[in-house]
């Protein structure tokens, strides 16, 4: 039996790990060689690119912007998606399937098509600007495309469907009887929500938020198209380093920096949440 499963696992394991380690090794090791221009790298191992990545304000600002945008996206998505997930989870099963299916439908559509829609909606002559001008709220047009809010908007679109589907299964697994018990004992609906539903769903919220954070940190399409070349997040900077300067070493070091940062944030949040829960249980 034992040997049997190893034989079953071996072929997919070899293929997947070759693709994973092979490609990542070939690319990331370039980060330790100095760029010589026209796509060539030096032969001497050095930390030059990483030192540049972690000291030059341009790259550090890109990382900070990337982080701020990702946190904003996660926060906005949670605020919008949590109540929706809760409402859908407490509907009759027939209706919750309908509303969840709607979320699946929207996630079937590629991000570029959604970005195309957002560009039309917020274009200079798009429905939003025309409506606002018609109501007289604004004289000129409001700009969303080419700003940070445009990028946040695009990523929030991506995030909401994802978050509702993730949180739905979390909230659905909280027995309704717990809420009823709290209510019978005199808690108001709000109190039940804050003291029962939200704490019990916290582990799910944290893991869903981290997943969305990781996606948002690596987001490229929305950052390029909705940022209009003005919102320089790390993925955009990485692409430009290749496209404009063909510095593969620098691009590799920046990719290394991005992944290290994302990894560190994940580790820190998981540890922090575990500590917090441990502390709370120690008190009660």
């Amino acid at each position: 039996m034992k040997a049997n499963w190893v034989v079953v696992l071996a072929p997919p394991f070899l293929v997947c790990m070759t693709l994973l380690f092979g490609t990542q090794y070939v690319f990331l090791q370039l980060g330790f060689f100095r760029d010589l221009g026209i796509g060539q790298v030096g032969t001497e191992l050095e930390l030059f690119n990483y030192i540049r990545a972690f000291t030059e304000p341009f790259f550090l600002n890109a990382l900070r912007l990337n982080f701020v945008l990702a946190v904003a996206v996660v926060a906005i998505t949670l605020i919008v998606a949590y109540p929706i997930a809760y409402i859908v989870a407490r509907m009759t099963p027939k209706w919750s399937i309908v509303f969840l299916t709607a979320m699946v439908v929207s996630s079937f559509v590629s991000i570029v098509i959604k970005v195309l829609g957002i560009i039309i909606i917020f274009g200079a002559d798009g429905p939003v600007n025309r409506f606002l001008r018609w109501t007289g709220i604004i004289e000129e047009q409001i700009l969303v495309i080419g700003t940070k809010s445009g990028v946040i908007m695009g990523l929030t679109h991506l995030g909401i469907a994802f978050m509702v589907m993730m949180l739905f299964s979390v909230i659905q697994s909280i027995p309704r009887s717990l809420e009823e018990a709290a209510e019978i004992h005199g808690a108001s609906r709000w109190r039940v929500f804050w003291r029962v539903v939200i704490p019990l769903s916290m582990p799910g919220v944290v893991s869903a938020s981290l997943l969305l954070f990781n996606i948002a940190m690596g987001a490229f399409v929305s950052a390029v198209l909705l940022g209009g070349g003005k919102v320089m997040t790390l993925p955009v900077v990485i692409q430009r380093t290749i496209l404009l300067y063909t510095e593969y070493g620098m691009a590799a070091a920046l990719s290394g920096m991005l992944m290290l940062f994302v990894f560190a944030v994940n580790i820190v949040s998981v540890v922090a949440v575990t500590r917090m829960r441990a502390a709370r249980f120690a008190v009660t």
């Binding site: 994973l20 490609t23 990542q24 070939v26 990331l28 993925p235 990485i238 590799a252 991005l258 994302v262």
Partner: peptide
């Protein structure tokens, strides 16, 4: 650990995957 490794591609930003495959194809 093997399960984590199999799921690892979803943790890597797609732009890094794209660039890594491009470099590997050159190689």
């Amino acid at each position: 650990i093997l399960g984590t490794l199999f799921r690892a591609p979803l943790q890597i930003p797609f732009i890094v995957i794209g660039l890594a495959f491009l470099q590997a194809y050159y190689e």
